[in-house]
Amino acid sequence: MGYKPVYDYRADQLGKQAETQGAILVEGGWYCPSMPEPLINATIDLHAGRIERETWVQLIAARRAYRVMPKENADSDGYQRMMCPAEAGKAQCLLRPRSLGRGVHLPLVDPEPSPTGPVKICRQRTVTISPEAGAKHWQALEYGSREWQKVCFRLRNSVEGYNGYAKNPLAEGIESAGSHRIRGIAAQTILLAFQLAHANRRKIKKWLDTLPLGGERPRRRTHHRRQTKEPQTWTPTGHLAPAA
């Protein structure tokens, strides 16, 4: 249907999550298998208190140069051709001689020698990644990036805010077991749907009461929101103060 997942991870889901064709899945994104360990474990180190939040932001930004890039759009079945960052001109690699000498602004990848030789993504110009590979943790946006923070926390705040609205014990009270004394998952789901529909109608009615309909004064005054911080200034463990 065109939707793509955006979410945070539990503490035991951070770092390297899966591997396919030699590429590694790190917190939802496919990366070069030779990406440095400090970049792979950046969020783990943040939660463990081994690095500061400012350092975490810098490490997340440094991951971008090691990200596996799409060669073309995914087909109708979800399979997609991808290429290593050196092939895409985002990094320099000793296994890709033509990628060398492009400037000091590009990181130099130095793969560790292996008795079995380079992995598939390092041998071929492109590889095909299936939709099943890493599907449990994959997400479209780069974890921890400004775009991810803006979308993830905005959606999360909206969901949590609506949950609190529908849990109002003086209204729908969806959290109260006494308001839905019925057995069975199907029956509970149908009842919850009616409760949420009623919560939606209550929200709409409250909004309509703030409009000057028919030339009359609105029945309610509009709600003035408190000033909040920008969503992209938040990190997985709290607020990141702007640099001095």
Rank of each mutant, 00 (worst) to 15 (best):
M1G: 14
G2S: 12
P5I: 03
V6A: 10
Y7H: 15
D8E: 08
D8C: 02
Y9H: 06
A11E: 13
Q13S: 13
Q13V: 00
L14Y: 02
G15H: 06
G15M: 02
G15Y: 03
E19S: 10
T20V: 09
L25C: 06
E27D: 14
E27S: 04
G29A: 08
P38S: 11
L39H: 11
L39E: 14
L46D: 00
H47N: 09
A48Q: 11
R50F: 11
T55S: 15
W56H: 12
V57W: 12
Q58I: 03
L59Y: 15
L59I: 01
A65Y: 06
V68F: 06
S76E: 14
Q80G: 05
M82A: 10
P85D: 09
K90G: 05
Q92I: 03
L94H: 07
R96M: 08
P97G: 07
S99H: 08
S99G: 15
L100G: 13
R102K: 15
G103V: 14
V104M: 14
H105W: 14
H105D: 15
P107H: 07
L108C: 10
L108D: 01
L108G: 03
E112I: 06
P115N: 06
T116V: 07
T116C: 04
G117M: 10
G117W: 09
K120A: 15
K120V: 14
R123T: 07
E132K: 10
A133M: 06
Q139S: 06
G144P: 02
R146G: 03
W148L: 03
Q149S: 07
K150A: 11
R154S: 15
L155W: 12
N157S: 08
E160R: 12
G161W: 07
Y162L: 09
Y165E: 06
P169R: 09
A171L: 04
G173T: 06
G178V: 12
G178H: 03
S179F: 10
H180W: 08
R181Q: 09
I182M: 11
G184H: 12
T189G: 01
L191W: 14
A193S: 08
F194S: 07
F194D: 07
L196A: 04
K205E: 13
D209V: 01
L213T: 01
G215A: 01
R217S: 08
P218R: 04
T222K: 09
Q227A: 11
Q232L: 12
W234R: 02
H239Y: 15
H239A: 14
